[in-house]
Amino acid sequence: MQMKSWIAGFAAILAVASADAAAQAKYPVSPVSLVTHSSPGGGSDVFLRELIKHLTPVMGTSFGVDNVRGGSGAAAIAKVAKSPPNGGMLYATTPTYIQTSLLSKPEIGYDGLDPIAIVFLDPEVIYTRTESPFRSVADAIAYAKANAGRAKWGAANPASLERIALERLKKAAGVQAAVVSHEGGGDLMINVLNGTLDFGIGEIQEIRAQLDAGKVRLLGVVTDRRLPDFANVATVREQGFDVVVTKFRGLAGPKGIPDDIAAQWERAIRQVVASDAYKAEYSKESLVLSVMGRAEARAFTQKFAEEIAGTLRELGVIK
């Protein structure tokens, strides 16, 4: 679904929003199409729409978000990979694009694209309902140890990063637990709230409503450092289990984009993430700032893909 007609509308809205227009060197293409596999209102879609609100004045060009669904991201990847490498079309990356490539081996996979930048890491947390006796991941693990075969943990989607993280947690703690995958975060939340599960794993964003209402409690964060918003919640690693999930949000383009365009993106991103207006938005979602330029993003993506491929192979999901 391409919605070019919206681009003009956006540009108009965004022009109003542009207060801190500290324009740098003019970007060579306008409008720039940012492609995502998520539908309007979905994770990457919201990420892009918030990002371009701030990027527009800084980069001196206009942007449009293009929701290309189908094939769990494969269609979007193929579309971007085939576009001319002039910076006119980029893809919003998340771990999904690597996983889809590994699981279904489409004609053009994640390695058909060249990472431009990484912007954020999405922190994952382990949570349970307020009525639960567990106060930490360690409590839940102790329960699993004492009650063989009774522990029940939940992840939002099958073969997702979260599901894999729970398998690794099982291994790290040396316990047996039934890991149940669901059809998305809402489905999982119901089974946490009604006590079917000991705990669930998910993004802050997904559990925000219940968290604010005091219906769920965090047991641990699955990042390498504590989150500033939840400084009293220990990381899973601190609790003695070496499990960290890295969920990233970034941009990638077709191969052959000139270095100066990539550098322009890095400068612009670094500038907008430092602005107070954007900071207010992304810190509300508890996103962890982790800006990487092209070279770093390439190395990061490569390493991430190798790790995930290794884990998937180890678990027998792929050959």
Binding site: A159, E167, V179, L315, G316, V317, K319
Partner: peptide
């Protein structure tokens, strides 16, 4: 159905 990948998950 026999061709479906066996997974440890």
């Amino acid at each position: 159905a026999g061709n479906i990948q066996q997974s440890l998950l």
